[in-house]
Nucleic acid binder design. Sequence first.
DNA 1: TACCAACCTACCGAACTGATAGGTATGGTT
DNA 2: AACCATACCTATCAGTTCGGTAGGTTGGTA
Lengths: 141, 141
Amino acid sequence: MISTRGRYALRVLIDLAEHNDGKYIPMKDVAERQDLPLKYLERILPVLTKNKLIVGLHGKGGGYRLSRTPDAYTVGEILRLTEGNLAPVSCLEQDAAPCARAAECRTLEMWTKFYEMTNTYFDGITIADLMQSEVGNDYII
Amino acid sequence: MISTRGRYALRVLIDLAEHNDGKYIPMKDVAERQDLPLKYLERILPVLTKNKLIVGLHGKGGGYRLSRTPDAYTVGEILRLTEGNLAPVSCLEQDAAPCARAAECRTLEMWTKFYEMTNTYFDGITIADLMQSEVGNDYII
DNA sequence: TACCAACCTACCGAACTGATAGGTATGGTT
DNA sequence: AACCATACCTATCAGTTCGGTAGGTTGGTA
């Protein structure tokens, strides 16, 4: 199940994309528009800035802006960063302890295929796909 | 993420299917074969008996057996019973509070399609599909 | 009657979730 | 230089879930 971390991060990025006018956008504005707790967003965003998905600027006139065009963000990338991973079962997580029963496991193939399906699905959707078409696309980033 | 509840239930049902010889199989035997804690399994099974996926018999010579042929159990049904639901986000759960932002939600369609994909995938796989073909299919249910 | 296995209920520690609180760092504006 | 808005950092917390244990009760067979 996707938690609020991933869902809120998506909403923030979509909001930043839709309200992009070249300037930095204070997270306070995004939080108000999206009706999300500012302080909680501040705890979610660091992973996005550290991975250069957004750029933060301190002080007056500061805020955040996207570092790429909206079509260059896949939902898969965002969810993997904020949720950790999209594995349906713990034994498929990147650094999971190797399962002793893997050789005889009747379900491993099923989980693996579902995992691939999930990644393929979310990697095929970008922030641009999620933006309201009438808004935001008119602006130059 | 699918928890042990769903994964263990699947393993129990596959084990019952593979070791079916017409008699009731004590859960103690399944727990030993699968290396799962018996007491924990006893807490997971009631939802399967209440929904008539398996039949339990008390006392000596008792245990559990499947109530259908293995090809009549879909993984989707089993996971929905044991995990509650397969919704990727809380707003898609059956009795979720209606979301005030649904009309303007940029991501609802994405989640809904993923939800449908998930259900379709797991509903397309049966216990029979997961059984080791050399074993179990020789027995008559 | 003895036994065995399903079944039921309470409890428990650890982790995760969804926050809140209170600060510090950093830059532009005045 | 002072001010102030904003990002950024760390600790804390109540509630829930997870994975499991413990101990008993019910019901059926041998």
